[in-house]
Amino acid sequence: MYIMQSSSVARLAQVLNRFPSRLTSTGGRPSAPLGSRILTDPDDIFKYNMWDHVQWTEEDKETFRQKAEENSRKQIPLKEQGRFDKEAWQYWDRFYRTHQDKFFKDRKWLFLEFPELLPSGSRSQAASRSLGDERGADRDGRQQQHNRPTDLPNPQDSGDAATQAASFPGQHASHRILEIGCGVGNSVFPIIDSIKETDAFLYCCDFSPCAIQLVKGHPAYDEATCRAFVHDIREESSFPFPTQSLDVILAVFVLSSIHPDRIPGVVKRLSTYLRRGGIFLFRDYGRYDFSQLRFKKGRCLSENFYTRGDGTCAYFFSKEDVHDLFSNAGLEEVQNLEDRRLQVNRGKKVVMHRVWMQSKYRKTYLPPAS
């Protein structure tokens, strides 16, 4: 486990002096996304629970690399690894049966980081509401950016495959969203709340029947706005909507749970459901995140891929991983960011390096008809 102690805090002071232009807060919101709580004085480190846009020293990078290399040396034997892929849905189903909806919090930051989730006319209002929620908590608000490009055609044009398909849920919506790996609805219900008075429709799926049961049993679940269903995105099975019919696909901490050999195929299949101009929104674990470094020896399945004690798995992406993954699926980069933060335990006076990837990739063309 890597925890920043006093010596590391001293090194952080050196970094702050080395990168003043990147780490200075002006009191307003910065032009960059992913938060505005910037640590400029090391003496303030225990003032808040999280600090944004953190720089790493070369010493930090080497320490992290060595930690990951060390906990990866002893891998689970190949003959035992198959069950973590084959029985993945069972491990996650057991997870949700144990924790129900108590483990994760609703993602109120969604619309500030991912305004593309909403129809264009609803984005400013939802982002403002989310910013207000975040300011009331011990976290920062996040900046809205990247609306639909004006040089792309309206997705409701005559070439929309959805308008030519048989009847399906949400077919009359002008804005369609799919969340994969929705869990118990921590993204679903903020989205439903924001689209219920718009001409938008949300699909959400998970391969855990328990998770979907919890979503459908939630008092805010509304079939007029949302369709939740059990689906294993790793398999080549059909969705309840046609190809080229979605405006947005949302994947938040889900692709990391899949064996890395399967992920490219998953992204390619999902991308066929995006319209021209549709966007794939991605947020997940980054390379050398604290949670990667604290894995014990013997929990590694393959490079940067681990299994937890409960059988669920986690892969840790690099920026290059993400770019190759989506570019090879025929999508164009809009955003590909490494979100580095300091997470602070003020009671124990320790600081942990967190790393998440946040990316947006757009479909700029449709494949020729076969």
Rank of each mutant, 00 (worst) to 15 (best):
M1Y: 12
Y2D: 15
Q5L: 13
V9F: 02
R11E: 07
A13F: 06
T24L: 09
G27E: 08
P30C: 06
P33K: 02
S36C: 13
D41Q: 02
D43Q: 05
D43V: 05
D44F: 05
M50N: 08
W51P: 01
H53P: 07
E59S: 13
E59L: 14
F64W: 09
F64E: 05
R65P: 08
K67C: 14
E69P: 10
K74R: 11
K74E: 13
K74T: 14
G82H: 09
K86A: 14
A88E: 04
W89E: 14
Y91F: 06
R97I: 03
T98L: 15
Q100F: 15
D101N: 12
K102C: 11
L118E: 06
P119R: 04
S122L: 15
S124C: 10
S130N: 06
S130C: 11
D138H: 04
P149D: 08
G159F: 08
G159S: 08
A162Y: 07
F168E: 03
H172D: 13
S174Q: 11
V184Q: 09
G185Y: 02
N186Q: 11
S187P: 05
D193K: 09
C205H: 03
S208C: 03
P209D: 01
Q213G: 12
K216A: 01
H218T: 04
H218D: 11
H218V: 08
P219Q: 09
Y221H: 01
T225G: 09
R227Q: 13
R227A: 15
H231P: 02
I233S: 00
I233G: 00
S238D: 14
P242K: 10
D247Y: 07
V248N: 04
F253C: 11
V254S: 05
V267G: 10
T272G: 15
R276C: 12
R283S: 11
G286A: 06
R287Y: 13
R287C: 12
Y288V: 02
L293N: 02
R299E: 11
N304E: 11
Y306K: 06
D310F: 02
T312F: 04
F317C: 07
K319C: 10
H323K: 15
L325E: 00
F326S: 05
G330L: 03
L331I: 01
L331F: 00
E332G: 06
E332V: 11
K348A: 14
M352Q: 15
H353G: 15
S359I: 05
K363M: 01
A369C: 15
